[in-house]
């Protein structure tokens, strides 16, 4: 279910990129302060806060969330291990999508450098992503082969 949620979010992001929305202020707080606050809020609450404004939506997509150790601590054995791996893979995937959103924001903030930034990122991504994806697939396969 959560995976479905994510793909839909990504679709929305793409639409936003096409529209090239202007950035607005983050209330009266600076970006790094707001992101520092976001990093302390659970993912579910953060998803809800995405509708606050477009800027918040972008900031929330950009934060490196420190996951609270709710599911994996206190449990031992194979199931938590699998859960953890799935979660980690999900995070990895998310980071990939986040980085693309970040480039978009760079462009908004620094329109002068935007072209260069984007060009660099275009050059960079094809090299790194297939490698990452292969790695992710490989680890999850290994985990599941261990289950079966």
């Amino acid at each position: 279910m959560t995976v479905a949620m994510e793909t839909e979010e990504e679709e929305e992001e793409e639409e936003e990129e096409e529209e090239e929305e202007e950035m607005i202020e983050l209330g009266n707080l600076s970006n790094d302060v707001v992101e520092s606050i976001f990093s302390r809020i659970s993912l579910k609450s953060l998803i809800r806060l995405k509708v606050v404004s477009k800027t918040w939506h972008n900031s929330i997509n950009n934060i490196r969330h420190c996951y609270p150790p709710t599911t994996s601590t206190g449990m031992e054995g194979l199931i938590p291990l699998v859960c953890k791996t799935i979660k980690r893979n999900k995070t990895l995937r998310k980071y990939e999508s986040l980085s693309s959103a970040a480039n978009n924001i760079c462009e908004d903030f620094y329109p002068d450098y935007g072209g260069v930034e984007k060009y660099q990122s275009l050059q960079r991504t094809p090299v790194s992503t297939p490698k990452d994806k292969q790695l992710v697939r490989f680890t999850s396969h290994r985990i599941f082969s261990c289950v079966t």
């Binding site: 983050l26 579910k44 509708v51 477009k54």
Partner: peptide, 23 residues
Amino acid sequence: FHINCDYTPEEEAKIRKANAQAF
């Protein structure tokens, strides 16, 4: 946070629908 919502009602509804669980 003294933020003005810059979503149109349609856009907001779409995000809410996509993340129904969180709402």
